[in-house]
């Protein structure tokens, strides 16, 4: 059988992913994460009497801490499995990627294990985050003059 014909046969027996369901769950969970983040900012500004930008930073630190803690306790992979992009796209996903790699490789030593492998998944996010920030910054400079 030719490769192309076989691919058609495979496609016939391959189930469709539940794109709509996944998108809906991600939308709702992602939205709840947004509400949680905003709530934290409001609480921090009120409690510590600080500016919104300082409170945002505290909010991000809190969410990263929560993502890491739940990853270490072994819950977060199951939560991500359900919520999918709702938890992966926010900062919690980044924390989860870093922490799961660190956990996996800690037994291989501090330098050869954690040091060399912690960015195994998150490295991609950082590299392309910086590259796209540069490109969009350039576009903004050209179109809007800064």
């Amino acid at each position: 059988m030719e490769d192309k014909k076989y691919k058609n046969l495979v496609d016939k027996h391959t189930p469709k992913e539940n794109v709509l369901d996944n998108a809906l769950i991600a939308f709702v969970v992602g939205g709840l994460m947004g509400i949680l983040g905003q709530g934290l900012i409001d609480i921090y500004t009120y409690l510590f009497n600080i500016s919104t930008s300082d409170a945002s930073m505290l909010m991000i630190v809190t969410l990263i801490f929560l993502g890491c803690l739940l990853t270490c306790l072994g819950f977060f992979d199951k939560m991500v499995h359900f919520a999918r992009c709702g938890l992966i796209i926010p900062i919690t996903g980044f924390a989860h990627a870093m922490m799961s790699a660190a956990l996996e490789y800690r037994k291989e030593g501090l330098v050869t294990g954690i040091g060399a492998n912690m960015f195994k998944l998150a490295g991609t996010v950082i590299i392309f985050g910086v590259v796209s920030a540069y490109i969009f910054g350039l576009i903004r400079l050209i179109i809007m003059g800064g």
Binding site: N22, G74, D77, K78, H96, S100, A101, Y105, L121
Partner: peptide
């Protein structure tokens, strides 16, 4: 992926 990573 690392075993604790829960990517879909």
């Amino acid at each position: 992926y690392p075993t604790e990573y829960g990517g879909p």
